[in-house]
Design a protein around this nucleic acid. Structure first.
Lengths: 240, 240, 240, 240
DNA sequence: CATGAATGAGGGTTCATTCAT
DNA sequence: CATGAATGAACCCTCATTCAT
């Protein structure tokens, strides 16, 4: 059965996408605070065009974050069959938190309860369900404590997102998330320290100040942006 | 160092205090969102009077939260000589989080970085310093991992405050904070499980759903509001 | 006189009719308030198509109501030869009011004066003329007071339409119209004419055109603003 | 018991009055259509000042029309002891209509049903009650037909207001009102009651409440939807 | 010095009309 | 020629801050 509506006109689709892209950027930067007119301006369209595509500002917000969360749910489902359930679970959490670090809207939406921006498209429940699958497998594999449920994990994830967003300047990104997520590991599991070693660098950023690294193609990969941060890291390692 | 200004008149001081009390309540409930006029109304004064005492709405916010944080700093300092450094440290954190649970303004202020509401009166630094003392003693006593610094603790505390504020409905209050703070305990310290046992009930509320308990003066104190929650707690204990 | 334009294409005419049908329904329900997009949607066409057929929303409104009024004019003309002039007259009025009860657009249009929606197609004048024929015959037959003219009847009809639209809940439909139209019937007794004599002048305004009078302190009070209106009043008095 | 609030400041009261005066003029000219900013501009104040005094535009409208209606209710009550009940009744109606002629807001408000602008201050009911007193006395004095109730009078008044507002240019002001109100006067001859008999039922609806009738194919056609309405009709017929 | 009235710049939203596809 | 997307001016309302009383 084909849909009733004809395919969107090319220019309309282009504009809709421009609006969503502009909204994504704007909401990511300032959350719901950003004025709708600002989004329209950034998209290069009139306010009316935004309202043609989205009934309210909130609907636009929902669309933007639901889109993003849908992608994450897909990711989670893809990880459901991974070889290493523990890694799949922890990696997924880390990726969500990573995404929220650069997207305040995502952060806001994932943290909301009942009647939040993700309720309309049931993305909140879908996210919880997909996460639950990963969690259960990780528990079975002995990589996560057995006494936590998915709601606690989501709450902990909220905390991680908040911590990265409101982390003290002296704390390098991702580190505190790694530490907090460690609380999910089984107690007896001391052979795998997780925390210290898990903080693998996924991109070329200084481990201390998070500034992009001048990567050189040859030699050992750089971990710090310069001598100052290297020294700081040294102090941190030797402090205790 | 005495100030140049003459001492405040009695009625003026009374007004200032009324404004601060009203602002405390209002900000605690809604954070910065509350309109200034609402505060003035609650204080029983005109908006002009608020502005006579505080240059801007933000200045009032600063004053209110700095006051509250000052009291906490005092608390922390008092705990600096406690017999059990570990307990002092963890209790203090728990108390701060508890306070933030009923005071959104405090939560907002403590989480802010650089040029936040606590900077004006240096309360942010004072808080960090006081916390640092507790932290170092707890590390020395072996109750906290040696590889965390005070900035990480503050960041983790931010996460706890956020988690309590945005906790999933199925998660009882305080539990997730206990779990997260556990991440600070040294790894080898498995004799003291902390998490499960640390969650002591400070008031008469169901451990599962947080509703007030019908306390009976005799017999063993109730922990749950009814059979449903007791069963749920049992499932949670035996799930793994 | 044939128009210069070629006959409309079949699909174009079909579209025009669909728009008018949709507009009829929509305007009937909400009057001019209904958004044009809503009409286009109901007609299953784009807004542009509406504008291709009607220069403005108002033009569409005119077309719709003129159509409806044209049908009524035809009705009135058909009644011009009825056996019972009184019944023809009163029935026609009742039918118009009845129609306006379910068609707010018709109600709006018939009530408007000068440059209203019916002016463009001269339907207002045509309606008045057709009604006038019925009125004169009814007067001749002794079923309507001789001292009313068609403008008064139209005005009274406006009142009836308004009364049915804004009638108190406790008043059954049509009853108040019947009561008001009764005022047109000749008085069986001629001792108390009521109408003419009751209209006492409360202020110094011309009885015909309502402009303020140049009152003179002496002599008989003026009733008209000048010779033109005096003559008009005379005609009105002697018309029947 | 004195009121809690101190008397309004002189300038504030002046501004409030300016707003109400401006609103009176503007609403009188264009009804609710007039933009609030326009009212503010006419009053020489900012929009915020209007909102300081009136919670919403509708509240301002209510205040303006309630004020006016209150004065009319007072007038009606003062007329309750007049020597000539008939004159009092008809004069009052004429005055209301006269007022509505120059005040579209008043016209709108008086015509509205349920939850209209006059409901908030119960002015609608007060108006009806006060009018009812005049009506009953006029009926007793034999100056008004005994078979009309106050709701019909209000509805008729609605019609008069509408007629004056939408009167044909050729009809002098007040004349049509006089004519319509004449319908309330008792008929000298009672042989032809007109009203009751003219209202022929065109469709199967209850004569009282207008609900569809359960028509039976045999026997006399039903006129009422049930015993309740039949009784009500009986009361209406025998009331005089 | 207190009061609370006034300001006015925005913010979200609607809709008649135009115009690119 | 139809489509329906885009425009943008209004509209109602809020609230931090200033200032006359």
């Amino acid at each position: 059965m084909p849909t009733d509506r004809p395919p969107m006109r090319a220019d309309a689709r282009r504009n809709r996408e421009r609006v969503m892209r502009a909204a994504l950027e704007a909401f990511a930067a300032d959350g719901r605070l950003v004025p709708l007119d600002e989004i329209a301006r950034r998209a290069g369209v009139g306010a009316g065009t935004v309202y043609r595509n989205f009934a309210t500002k909130e609907a636009l917000f929902e669309a933007v974050v639901s889109d993003r969360v849908r992608a994450m749910v897909d990711e989670a489902r893809a990880l459901g069959a991974a070889d290493d359930p523990g890694a799949a679970f922890y990696d997924f959490l880390a990726r969500v938190v990573e995404a929220a670090m650069v997207n305040h809207a995502l952060c806001e939406a994932l943290m909301e309860q009942g009647a939040g921006a993700l309720e309309g498209e049931c993305m909140d429940a879908a996210f919880t369900d997909a996460l639950d699958v990963l969690l259960r497998r990780a528990i079975e594999a002995g990589d996560v404590r057995g006494d936590v449920d998915v709601h606690e994990v989501r709450t902990l994830m909220n905390g991680c997102m908040a911590m990265e967003r409101f982390r003290r300047a002296a704390v390098p990104p991702r580190r505190i998330t790694a530490l907090a997520l460690d609380a999910l590991r089984p107690r007896q599991d001391v052979t795998k320290q997780g925390n210290e070693t898990e903080v693998s660098r996924k991109d070329g950023a200084c481990e201390i100040c998070d500034r992009p690294l001048n990567t050189s193609r040859t030699g050992r990969p750089a971990r710090y942006c310069g001598p100052a941060c290297r020294q700081k890291a040294h102090r941190r390692r030797t402090r205790a």
